[in-house]
């Protein structure tokens, strides 16, 4: 962490960058938040640890409009979102300086809660295990048990883009990322409906998923405007959350890098990423494997017409 701070201070000092985008400590040890730093002094609050899951790419949209370059620290998976946003002309690559930071998977306090660890005072990363100080004494668990869902389906240790890389990364994949989607596909439509109704009914429409999603970056969201009466319509159905989330999934289809931020930030613990993954899985099946954000030039199969595109009939099927 100190190395990152020193490097950031140096780049600020020599004028290469005008500001630094990173994470800042908050009053809980497991909740560092994204923050801009504009001076060496401010950087003293900079933190980078196992809780720094937040994907910083999206903040670069705003900073692209500012004077000078912005230094951003990106984990390997964050670079996919960064590339996607560059491809969509939302981030000006020339206004950024990317330092790839090492990552061995990020953890979340929610997972610790689910493991039955309550009253957490502090968490210590001891390599393969976590030592958790709680009101009820010291507990420990394997590091991977506390990892974010997305880290179990890690995109690999390579940074897809970086001006320099500091630190080592690890590929933390230990599951098939489409396992749950396959399970859902095998349900009957009634079972599947019941599953999503149960999950999505928890939604409180806080918009955290929309606000955190790197590709959910429209200047004005269709749900905020009156161009389609979508808001009124969503309110008028008995199941407004379904409409919101399904429309959102379609709007990010072909652009979603599967960064998992939606599920990470959902205060209700809804596995929102499953909607996106179903679309990714179908796209892979229909058009060949495609990873959004792998580079800044490949056109998404959903916005590229080719002579060899699959015929519409192929999309039919599924369980009744």
């Amino acid at each position: 962490m100190q190395e990152l701070i020193e490097r950031a201070k140096a780049l600020l000092a020599d004028g290469t960058v005008s500001r630094v985008l990173g994470w800042r400590a908050t009053d809980t040890p497991f909740g560092p938040e994204p923050a801009f730093f504009e001076s060496g002094e401010e950087l003293n609050e900079f933190v980078y640890n196992c809780f720094c899951g937040a994907n910083l790419s999206k903040y670069l949209i705003e900073s692209s409009a500012l004077e000078g370059k912005t230094l951003a620290f990106l984990k390997p998976c964050d670079t996919y979102s960064f590339n996607q946003l560059c491809k969509e002309h939302r981030i000006d690559r020339g206004k950024t300086y990317i330092i790839g930071v090492g990552c061995k998977g990020k953890i979340t306090v929610e997972r610790l809660h689910e493991l039955g660890i309550k009253g957490i005072l502090d968490v210590e990363d001891a390599g393969d295990t976590l030592t958790v100080k709680t009101l009820y004494g010291e507990k420990s668990c394997p590091y991977s048990d506390a990892m974010l869902e997305r880290c179990h389906a890690c995109k690999g240790k390579e940074h897809r883009v970086a001006d320099e890389v500091i630190g080592e990364s690890a590929d933390t994949t230990d599951t098939d990322r489409f396992a749950k989607v396959t399970e859902l596909e095998q349900m009957t439509s009634k079972e599947r409906y019941a599953f999503f109704q149960a999950e999505l009914s928890k939604c409180i429409r806080c918009n955290a998923c929309r606000n955190v999603c790197p590709v959910c970056n429209c200047r004005k969201c269709v749900f905020d405007g009156n161009a389609f009466d979508s808001v009124q319509k969503a309110n008028a159905t008995e199941f407004e959350e379904k409409m919101f989330h399904i429309i959102r999934a379609f709007h990010v289809a072909g652009r979603c890098t599967d960064c998992g931020e939606c599920s990470r930030v959902c205060p209700q613990g809804i596995p929102l990423h499953l909607l996106n993954r179903k679309l990714i899985k179908d796209m892979d099946a229909f058009y060949g494997e495609y990873q959004a954000g792998e580079d800044t030039s490949t056109v998404s199969p959903l916005t590229a017409y080719t002579e060899h595109d699959i015929e519409p009939e192929a999309g039919k099927g599924g369980n009744e």
């Binding site: 969509e88 002309h89 939302r90 970056n217 004005k220 405007g225 161009a227 056109v299 998404s300 916005t303």
Partner: peptide
Amino acid sequence: LLCNGCSACAN
């Protein structure tokens, strides 16, 4: 006012 300039339409 709504356009993101993302190029999806041009594609």
